[in-house]
Amino acid sequence: KEFRPGDKVVLPPYGVGVVAGIAQRSVSGVSRAYYQVDFPGSRSKAYVPVEAPHSVGLRKAL
């Protein structure tokens, strides 16, 4: 896996977040693995496909 729990990442347009782990989510009846990204200071979460994280701009924070 490219990202691990605890990694600081950037996800446009949300900003800097932390990978909380990998979650299985069902979309249109198909279960897939997603990185769960939490954003400190907020209750917001984002789910990014493990198979294509760069397709939505997910990258490691510098």
Rank of each mutant, 00 (worst) to 15 (best):
K1D: 13
K1R: 12
K1L: 15
K1I: 14
K1E: 15
K1M: 15
K1C: 15
K1V: 14
K1A: 14
E2S: 12
E2F: 13
E2W: 12
E2A: 13
E2Q: 11
E2R: 11
E2G: 11
E2K: 11
E2M: 13
F3R: 00
F3K: 01
F3M: 03
R4F: 10
R4W: 09
R4H: 11
R4P: 12
R4Y: 09
R4S: 10
R4V: 09
R4N: 12
R4T: 07
R4G: 06
R4D: 04
R4K: 12
P5N: 06
P5R: 13
P5F: 09
P5Q: 10
P5V: 15
P5W: 04
P5I: 15
P5C: 13
P5H: 06
G6M: 03
G6E: 01
G6F: 03
G6L: 03
G6D: 01
D7F: 03
D7I: 03
D7E: 08
D7N: 03
D7C: 10
D7W: 09
D7Q: 05
D7H: 03
D7G: 02
D7M: 07
D7V: 04
K8G: 03
K8I: 15
K8C: 14
K8N: 06
K8H: 11
K8T: 08
K8P: 06
V9Y: 07
V9L: 03
V9A: 00
V9K: 01
V9W: 02
V10L: 07
V10F: 14
V10A: 04
V10M: 08
V10I: 13
V10S: 06
V10Y: 15
V10R: 04
V10T: 07
L11N: 00
L11V: 05
P12R: 07
P12M: 09
P12G: 04
P12Y: 12
P12T: 04
P12F: 11
P13R: 09
P13V: 05
P13Y: 10
P13N: 08
P13S: 06
P13D: 05
P13Q: 06
Y14F: 11
Y14H: 07
Y14N: 02
Y14M: 11
Y14D: 00
Y14V: 02
Y14C: 11
Y14E: 01
G15I: 02
G15C: 15
G15T: 02
G15R: 04
G15L: 03
V16Q: 11
V16F: 14
V16M: 11
G17W: 02
G17T: 01
G17E: 00
G17V: 02
G17M: 02
G17S: 01
G17K: 00
V18T: 08
V18Q: 04
V18H: 05
V18L: 06
V18R: 08
V19E: 01
V19H: 00
V19Y: 05
A20D: 03
A20I: 13
A20Y: 08
A20L: 10
A20W: 08
G21F: 06
G21R: 13
G21N: 07
G21C: 13
G21V: 05
G21W: 04
G21P: 00
I22Q: 02
I22C: 04
I22T: 06
I22K: 03
I22E: 02
I22N: 00
I22W: 03
I22L: 06
A23T: 14
A23F: 15
A23G: 05
A23E: 12
Q24W: 15
Q24Y: 15
Q24H: 12
Q24S: 09
Q24A: 07
Q24F: 15
Q24L: 14
Q24I: 15
Q24N: 11
R25F: 14
R25S: 05
R25E: 03
R25K: 09
R25I: 14
R25G: 08
R25V: 12
S26Q: 10
S26N: 12
S26A: 08
S26G: 04
S26T: 15
S26F: 13
S26V: 14
S26H: 08
S26D: 10
V27C: 11
V27N: 06
V27I: 11
V27R: 06
V27K: 09
S28P: 02
S28Y: 09
S28M: 14
G29T: 02
G29K: 03
G29V: 01
G29W: 02
G29S: 03
G29I: 01
V30T: 08
V30Y: 08
V30E: 08
V30K: 09
S31W: 15
S31G: 05
S31P: 08
S31Y: 13
S31E: 08
S31F: 12
S31M: 14
S31L: 13
S31I: 14
R32E: 04
R32C: 07
R32W: 04
R32N: 05
R32Q: 08
R32T: 06
R32G: 13
R32A: 15
A33L: 14
A33D: 10
A33S: 11
A33N: 09
A33W: 15
A33H: 09
A33I: 08
A33Y: 14
A33Q: 11
Y34N: 01
Y34T: 01
Y34H: 03
Y34I: 00
Y34E: 00
Y34A: 00
Y35T: 01
Y35A: 01
Y35Q: 00
Y35H: 01
Y35C: 04
Y35F: 07
Y35V: 03
Q36T: 09
Q36F: 07
Q36I: 15
Q36K: 12
Q36D: 03
Q36M: 13
Q36A: 09
V37W: 01
V37L: 06
V37E: 01
V37P: 00
V37G: 01
D38W: 15
D38Y: 14
D38V: 15
D38Q: 12
D38T: 14
D38I: 15
D38R: 13
D38K: 13
F39D: 01
F39Q: 00
F39A: 01
F39N: 01
F39W: 02
F39C: 15
F39E: 00
P40Q: 08
P40G: 10
P40M: 09
G41S: 10
G41Y: 13
G41A: 11
G41L: 12
G41K: 09
G41N: 11
S42V: 09
S42F: 10
S42N: 09
S42A: 09
S42P: 06
R43A: 11
R43P: 12
R43V: 11
R43E: 11
S44W: 15
S44T: 14
S44G: 12
S44C: 15
S44M: 15
S44Q: 15
S44F: 15
S44L: 15
S44N: 13
S44E: 12
K45G: 04
K45I: 12
K45A: 12
K45S: 15
K45D: 02
K45H: 12
K45T: 14
K45Q: 10
A46Q: 11
A46Y: 10
A46R: 11
A46V: 14
A46L: 09
Y47I: 03
Y47W: 11
Y47R: 01
V48N: 02
V48C: 06
V48I: 08
V48P: 00
P49N: 04
P49W: 08
P49G: 03
P49V: 04
P49S: 09
P49I: 06
V50C: 05
V50I: 09
V50Y: 06
V50T: 04
V50N: 02
V50A: 03
E51F: 06
E51G: 08
E51W: 12
E51Q: 07
E51V: 06
E51S: 09
A52G: 08
A52Y: 09
A52S: 11
A52V: 05
A52D: 15
A52H: 10
A52F: 10
A52P: 04
P53N: 05
P53S: 13
P53I: 10
P53H: 07
P53M: 06
P53V: 12
P53C: 10
H54Q: 10
H54M: 08
H54Y: 10
H54V: 05
S55H: 08
S55D: 09
S55V: 10
S55R: 10
S55G: 07
S55I: 11
S55M: 10
V56G: 08
V56D: 05
V56A: 14
V56Y: 13
V56K: 08
V56T: 09
V56W: 11
V56C: 14
G57R: 06
G57C: 11
G57K: 05
G57A: 05
G57H: 05
G57S: 04
L58K: 03
L58A: 04
L58D: 03
L58Y: 01
L58E: 10
R59K: 08
R59I: 09
R59Q: 07
R59S: 06
R59D: 03
K60I: 09
K60D: 07
K60T: 07
K60N: 08
K60G: 14
K60Y: 10
K60L: 14
K60P: 13
K60R: 10
K60A: 10
A61D: 07
A61M: 11
A61P: 05
A61E: 06
L62W: 10
L62Q: 11
L62S: 12
L62P: 12
L62H: 11
